[in-house]
Amino acid sequence: MELKNKATVSALGVAFAALLVPGLLAGGEALALPEGIETVKVAPTSKDHPLDEILSGWHFRSPETQALQEDDFENPAFLWVEQGEELWSTVEGAANKSCSSCHDDASETMATAGANMPKWNEALGKPVNLEQQINHCRTERMEADAWKWESTQLLAMTAYVRNQSRGEPVAVQTDGPMKPWFEKGKDIYYTRVGQLDMACSSCHEGYYGQQIRADRLSQGQTNGFPTYRFKWQKIGSLHRRFKGCMKNIRATPYKVGSDEFLALELYTAWRGQGLPVEAPAVRQ
């Protein structure tokens, strides 16, 4: 059920009042963190980092939203994690292999992988993110069809793999062959686009913690993706979220899996360098 109603109209009237005032919701204090997560706030690891403190999106949510992430049973995203676990050992494709044929026990072999993506792929001559790596394995090693972006299977596998790295600090490579991708991502982050002429930084660098109409702006950290969002009523990828942001500022979004979003994923991951992986998180 899409929740729409007359209050949306009257909300316009109070928009001025709610516009960019300090956060009204107390976030980040009330509840215990999910298993394996020690902190939702870390200090920047490099001197040239644009933020004084790095805060997970968890910090900005209401206690009720946080509560749904505290316990893995109550977190609805684990419906997908469980499915991913089944798929991990499901044989598919001409090579008669499953993920576990090469990677054995995911809790060991994927313990850090989810914190290091996107990562340079020598064979492809470009970085790949987790979704792309999964599909690369499927087509090259399993000789199976690639999963569609945002399909249940790809979301389930991404959530399962990244959950194995929960608690691991985000650490992406930004030098060497990754450097031009990092620079490209940074460029996209700060470039104003769309009818509203806004950049990622317009909201997530300058105004995090403040209300934009009825929403509390976060730093746009990526450590919780794939994330279960109430708005979506399901789990979704980071690139889906990027698209949503671009639509909000009335820009033409890049495509999921595009080089642009891949570069932006790398750059935004770096902005959250050191934050523990929370995937799958729960957000509004």
């Binding site: 109603n5 516009l19 509203l196 317009s202 934009i212």
Partner: peptide
């Protein structure tokens, strides 16, 4: 840091209003 204008912030919201207005189910 680039400033976000009042106009931009308001427009961000109103864009959503346009989207969410599609079919309004009557309330009980």
């Amino acid at each position: 840091m680039k400033e976000m204008s009042r106009r931009q912030a308001l427009a961000l919201g109103s864009g959503l209003v346009a989207i969410t207005l599609l079919p309004l189910p009557a309330t009980a």
